[in-house]
């Protein structure tokens, strides 16, 4: 259990949907999965989210975030730069690329006006920034432990995806909370998996998830930006 200190409160803050970095405007392919009928009810939504969580999130995005948290803690700017490139180079669609860049930009802007972010920005890091790398730097500046920062990332993702379902499927508030209850044990598992994943086991293979990201760009009716 994390001690109840300022860092614990910072942890809540980083994971909060009120963090002004614009996460609510992206569905990360879920809007397309709904449009194509791949996701159509609570059960199919649970399967879709569970597969993403235990697949490309735990084995790629969150795993790169874990590496970035270690690099930020060690002050290894060169490694942060490599990880930043890898996140950007692995985006499956233009929208996904814009999403990570826009959210990273907003979080960087936010840090620059906070007392916690006054010092310690990795100046060697080149723009455009990717969100996992800026998230790792933010967690370090907020004195949040790396593994907790990964859990906060996954939690933000889950909460945001449930919000998408509530708006676009639609799904009721209680059903959304039931979905969160069903997925929390896996979120815990995914955090540990990502935190301990060896570099050679990185894996972002999820072809229909990629296809959903591509198809969103030409979807006729869209509420979300990805």
């Amino acid at each position: 259990m994390m001690p109840l200190n300022v860092a614990a409160l910072q942890w809540l803050r980083l994971a909060s949907p009120a963090l002004p970095i614009g996460g609510y405007s992206y569905s990360q392919g879920l809007e397309t999965a709904l449009d194509l009928g791949w996701v159509y009810d609570a059960k199919s939504a649970e399967h879709w989210l569970s597969a993403i969580l235990m697949g490309p999130l735990a084995h790629f995005d969150a795993a790169l975030l874990a590496q970035a948290c270690r690099a930020a803690a060690a002050g290894n700017q060169a490694l942060l730069g490599h990880l930043n490139q890898r996140v950007l180079a692995s985006r499956e669609s233009r929208e996904q690329r814009l999403e990570t860049e826009q959210m990273a930009y907003s979080l960087h802007q936010l840090l620059s006006v906070l007392p916690e972010g006054a010092e310690g920005w990795p100046e060697q890091l080149q723009t455009p920034y990717s969100l996992p790398v800026v998230w790792a730097v933010a967690a370090h500046q907020f004195a949040i432990a790396g593994e907790a920062a990964v859990a906060a990332w996954l939690w933000s993702w889950l909460e945001n995806q449930v919000m998408v379902l509530m708006k676009a499927m639609p799904m009721g508030q209680s059903a959304g909370q039931q979905l969160i209850s069903a997925l929390l044990p896996q979120l815990h598992e995914a955090t540990a998996l990502a935190w301990n994943l060896p570099e050679e086991e990185l894996n972002n293979f999820a072809p229909r998830f990629s296809l959903a990201a591509l198809k969103h760009e030409t979807q006729y009716s869209r509420l979300f930006r990805s």
Partner: peptide
């Protein structure tokens, strides 16, 4: 991996085992 000088332009990391849920899952094949 596709590199242009020191910049990684594009990369893809694929690991698919026979027992993988990705064969059947809606996000996989």
């Amino acid at each position: 991996e596709i590199w242009r000088q020191q910049q990684l332009l594009w990369c893809e990391h694929t690991r698919l085992a026979a027992s993988d849920p990705l064969w059947q899952s809606a996000i996989g094949l």
